[in-house]
Design a binder for these strands. Sequence first.
DNA 1: GTCCAGGGCCTAC
DNA 2: GTAGGCCATGGA
Length: 223
Amino acid sequence: MNAGEVLIQIYETLRGAYGHRGWWPGETPFEIMVGAVLTQRTNWRNVAKAIDALRSAGVMEPAALSRVDLVRLQSLVRPAGYYRQKAARLKRLVDWLIERTGGDLERMQDAATEDLREELITLKGIGPETADSILLYALGRPVFVVDAYTKRVTVRHGLIHETCTYFELKELFESNLPRDVELHKDYHAQLVEVGKRQCRTKPRCATCPLHPVLGDPIEAEGF
DNA sequence: GTCCAGGGCCTAC
DNA sequence: GTAGGCCATGGA
């Protein structure tokens, strides 16, 4: 079996276990962008509180968020943790958005994916994963989002070495999967699901749906 | 009280 | 170029 076939088999196994997830809780592309920043190293439960606060304050929209006072924004996103950093990151993101599109995300659809990724990565506070999350879930580009769960699952199951880079892991998926946006969205969502439920500690891995397909997980410190 | 969650930046070697 | 520290809240 080649890499592409293994990856598809993993996906189908996870989907069979968890059902279609589609995923990214967010009403609008802009809200998805905001969530991508807020969820950095943070439980989604806390992120949801911050998102609710932003909605209630009427600033879940580019122009409004751009205008809101920084200290006010900090207090709104406080439940998501790292609130000073995240408020500043949201400001930079929304400033870029308005400068580039006037706040209308549709105007970004002409730009090439790689160019957009480069622009996003250049923003302080937007790294590879946040950029890819925005590209895939907010802008519908066929990129693969690599996160801690992706690495944990693939390393534990021997698909890639523990010392791999973000780019290598991203390439593993992107070069071996069809360039299908919905598949990319759901695949990442499935990996998060199995990562949350399994592959944290060995005992929890005992019921991992991937074991019958991939065999027992390997020992990997830190995963 | 301890651990950790859908990262990313900065500094020191 | 990379290991380590830092950012911070809230639930298990």
